[in-house]
Structure formats: structure tokens, C-alpha cells
């Protein structure tokens, strides 16, 4: 999923304070799962903003609404009946959701209430960790199902570096050394010969190296 974290309240207040009516929009997808911008967080933020602004002698009307999926124009249409009553939109979705709203309602200022962080998985209750950087050319088959691009601090495709210590990364003892994990997995799978083969220099065009990426499915596209 895409993970996110709420921005500091102070920063959000600075965005919405100039407006009288704000539409606060959550999303039922990823940000709900990582407890950053679902219905509940929308409620918490609305309540917190009310109280914080009240103390500044300001009264901003905040309307709450949570969409099924904020990155999908079809669902964003749901805001049509609410948008006219708002001077600005505050979005608790990831950056994709914020931009979908901005693209749909050209004359409404849209502010992000969360910082979109990374594509991650849940390690345990309440803990999410980065697992994928969307490089566009998946290596996981060669690396025992552990991504060196997302999980090695130096993105080494032929690691580990000299800083790997007792299974931890040199940058932080709480961060696993991705190459230790890869090696352990290759051993468990009986695939240690995979390691000997050098992974060649990456073609970053499938990743961030080639400008904004797009997928077009001819059979589905209208």
C-alpha cells in the first residue's frame, strides 16, 4: 500500500486559516489501512482543527467527507454536491488523491494534510516499512524475494557493503541489512549460485529516469 503520515497540525492550520469553509476529504483505501487519512483520521483532524482555530479566535467551517478512492475520478465526482460550498479542499489522501481532486476542480485550492511516504507493507500492528520503489523492472526473482533497491540504504544491486553488521545496516541497528536477508533467503532456497552472477547496471528508464510514467491498457482505455 501507499503509506502516509499526518502533517504537523501547525502546518495544516497555516494552509486552511485564510478560508471560511473547508472541505476535508479522506480516502477509504491505503491511507485508511495505515491510519493516516481514513474516516476516523478525518474526524480527528476536523475536531483538532476546530479547537486549535477556536483558540486563535478563528472560526472555519469544516465539512468532512471520505471517498471510496480518492485517486479515481469516478469516485471524486461524489464531491460535486459539496465542492461549491467550500472555499478550499484539505485532502488526507496520498499525493495521487490530492492531484486527482486538484485536476477535477480547477478553481479550488487543494492542500495536502498528510505527507505521502512510501510503498510499504505492514510488519506488525502499527508498523509499516518500505518494500518497493516502483523501479519498473522487478528484480525480486533474482534476489530471493527481497528488494535491494527499496531495502538497501545504498541501493546496492551487488551487496552487501562493508558496513553490514550482525544482520543490521550501518545506518541504523534497527534497519535490517537487505543483503543479509537476501543471502539468508538464497541459502534457505538452495539458490546461492544466484549470488555469484553480477546484477548488471540498471536501466533507470523504467523507473524515475524517464519522466512521468504511464500505463495504457488498450482494451480498457476509453
Amino acid at each position: 500500500m501507499i503509506t502516509a503520515e499526518r502533517k504537523p497540525l501547525e502546518e495544516i492550520i497555516a494552509c486552511v486559516a485564510p478560508f471560511r469553509k473547508v472541505l476535508l476529504v479522506g480516502c477509504n483505501e491505503c491511507v485508511t489501512v495505515c491510519a493516516a487519512g481514513g474516516r476516523k483520521e478525518v474526524g480527528l483532524l476536523a475536531s483538532g482543527l476546530h479547537m486549535a482555530l477556536l483558540q486563535q479566535g478563528k472560526s472555519v467551517e469544516i465539512r468532512e467527507h471520505t471517498l471510496e478512492r480518492q485517486c479515481d475520478p469516478e469516485y471524486v465526482e461524489e464531491l460535486n454536491s459539496l465542492i461549491d460550498g467550500a472555499d478550499a479542499v484539505l485532502s488526507m489522501a496520498c499525493g495521487c488523491g490530492v492531484q486527482t481532486i486538484a485536476g477535477r476542480y480547477k478553481d479550488k485550492p487543494v492542500f495536502p494534510a498528510v505527507n505521502t511516504k512510501f510503498m510499504g507493507a505492514s510488519e506488525r500492528q502499527g508498523v509499516w516499512a518500505e518494500r518497493c520503489q516502483g523501479c519498473g523492472n522487478c528484480l525480486l526473482g533474482q534476489t530471493g524475494g527481497i528488494c535491494p533497491i527499496a531495502r538497501c540504504a545504498k541501493r546496492l544491486m551487488n551487496g552487501p557493503c562493508g558496513g553490514s553488521t550482525k544482520g543490521s545496516c550501518e545506518i541504523d541497528p534497527d534497519t535490517d541489512c537487505a543483503w543479509q536477508l537476501i543471502w539468508d533467503r538464497l541459502k534457505a532456497l538452495g539458490l546461492t549460485e544466484n549470488y555469484v552472477e553480477m546484477i548488471p547496471a540498471k536501466d533507470w528508464r523504467t523507473s524515475i529516469g524517464n519522466g512521468p510514467r504511464k500505463i495504457i491498457r488498450e482494451d480498457l482505455a476509453e
Partner: peptide
């Protein structure tokens, strides 16, 4: 190279277009 975390520009982006072996 040492990770930027250890230096005086921890806010810099690590390039690592290639790794040392590449």
C-alpha cells in the same frame, strides 16, 4: 562510499546510479 547519514550533508540525495561492482 559511506552513507550520507554519517557526514555533514545528511540531507543530500545518495545517487548510487551504479554500485561499486557495476
Amino acid at each position: 562510499g559511506d552513507h550520507t547519514r554519517f557526514g555533514d550533508h545528511p540531507m543530500a540525495l545518495n545517487v548510487h546510479d551504479l554500485d561499486s561492482i557495476q
